[in-house]
Design a protein around this nucleic acid. Structure first.
Lengths: 275, 275
DNA sequence: GCGACTTTGTGCATGGGTTCACAAGCAGTT
DNA sequence: AACTGCTTGTGAACCCATGCACAAAGTCGC
């Protein structure tokens, strides 16, 4: 993310991944270095993206009461190869039991810690249009360690309106509110004209993580991590692959749902928004 | 895509991984092979994702009346390095003039053709909740070669309602409508419980391209291209990078907006020829 | 017409990521 | 206790992708 983002980022959907330097961890122990932090290993960007996917699948397995899962099963459910999955998990250290498989709850906790989801991230969202409301109402956040703490918009008609259990506030209060609410992640779902200004304000407020749905690439300082999801890019990539597919498979292939072993493509990013 | 991508994207951005076979074009000329199809070259997946981004930037330049743009400027506006951009474009064959730069409109047309956007893709969308409405109202589609031709939902309260210049139809009419409308791309923005069934119906209707916003990885036949955008995944990747950043940079870094080497978009007038 | 300057297009080296194949390790059985 | 069967974890080869550096190719000025 995007890059390919994504990303992928891009990203991407069109996720274009963020800017970025390598994923490497802390170069120097520096001051904070009291805790050894066992999960501080270098984890490849691509692996991080997939870990999030595994996490979702593990959540489903937990609900079903599954106790143990093998790499083969988990890989199939996630749409990746089993070898890749095992290598991904190996970055977190030994997690499974040979000859048996992985303990679902233990693995889940392990990934959550590695992704930093045990910190209770607080999210502020700017731009409460259709997309913003879809995001605000998306229940998946709470279940995955995020809590929406603030909604902002510049339209007077929307300010004051209740969305979920929050009330929309005016964007002028953004900087101060971010500090008060101790927000750590900012989401931009405004029209693209306003995106850069909102990003600047979020940066001024001290946020270091921004997720943008604006098609334009925003300019932020190096220390701010920024991901962009461009819906049109996703469609265009789809269009390209479509052209290649219909070209190489002119005759209608028999429809055999069910197999698929390989879902389609998917480079980075993934996601979910349930309306 | 089951796994995401997107990408990742993403993406977006980052991301990525499709499963799948290489991006290569048709393995065998087969029957249709009369037309040489000059743009049938193998284009790397990562490059395809970025081409879509370049296309958006070129659109902005066109609106500004820019005639010629150099790789340096276009790259800066797109958030990538100039060498990467030139290499990406080289997959489409020679496009620019040495010592001068790229003709904006010509390059735009070239990329559109390569991505298959000159086919006038017709899109149907299933699930007209907040997200669905956001997508339906997203002006970017029309400007980029896509036209929304059908909206469907299973909620009787929503069926018959006008959204944009279309009227929401019941999902039971989906298969027949897809054929009548000659749709080529299907977008799924339903709650996740309904996603798989909708996907099956789209496949039965003959669609070969599906973009899903459901977090679950859907099962589709091999010949169907499927991309998935999972918002929660984007947030989690962001969370991870956040953890790494704040760890390696414990002291508050000075905020210096502006640098970033990657201007947002506009390559200020320079060698660019403005009318 | 010629030289200097600018910018594209690309060969090559480097690094990251994916995949294969297999050794290491544990449970259950004999 | 040893054997069998299964699954994890990983070493190593392959492949894609990134970025550098430069030659090729065009324009501009004189």
């Amino acid at each position: 993310m995007t890059e390919t983002h994504q990303t992928h980022g891009s990203v991407a959907p069109g996720v274009t991944g963020a800017v970025g330097r390598s994923v490497v961890g802390s170069p120097a122990p520096s001051v904070t270095g009291a805790a050894p932090l066992p999960e501080s290993r270098d984890i490849p960007q691509a692996t991080v993206t997939r870990l999030a996917t595994y996490l979702r699948v593990l959540g489903v397995l937990t609900e079903r009461g599954t106790i143990i899962v093998s790499s083969e099963e988990l890989a199939a459910a996630s749409g990746v190869g089993s070898a890749k999955l095992r290598k991904d998990l190996s970055f977190l250290g030994p997690n499974g039991v040979r000859g048996v498989g992985y303990d679902v709850t233990r693995l889940r906790a392990r990934i959550e810690r590695a992704l930093g989801l045990d910190r209770g991230h607080k999210v502020v969202l700017v731009g409460v249009g259709n997309l913003g409301q879809a995001l605000a109402g998306y229940g998946g956040f709470g279940r995955r360690g995020f809590s929406m703490v603030g909604l902002f918009d510049s339209d007077p008609a929307r300010v004051g309106a209740p969305v979920g259990d929050l009330t929309v506030r005016h964007v002028d209060e953004l900087e101060q509110a971010c500090v008060e609410l101790e927000a750590t992640i900012g989401v931009i779902s405004t029209p693209e004209e306003a995106a850069q200004e909102v990003a600047d304000r979020l940066v001024r407020a001290g946020l270091r993580c921004i997720l943008s749905f604006s098609p334009t690439s925003l300019d932020v300082p190096d220390h701010v991590e920024m991901r962009r999801v461009d819906l049109a890019v996703e469609m265009q990539v789809l269009s390209f692959n479509s052209a290649r597919n219909t070209e190489s498979v002119p005759t209608a292939p028999r429809v055999r749902i069910g197999h698929s072993a390989v879902p389609s493509t998917a480079p980075r990013n993934g996601s979910v928004i349930a309306p």
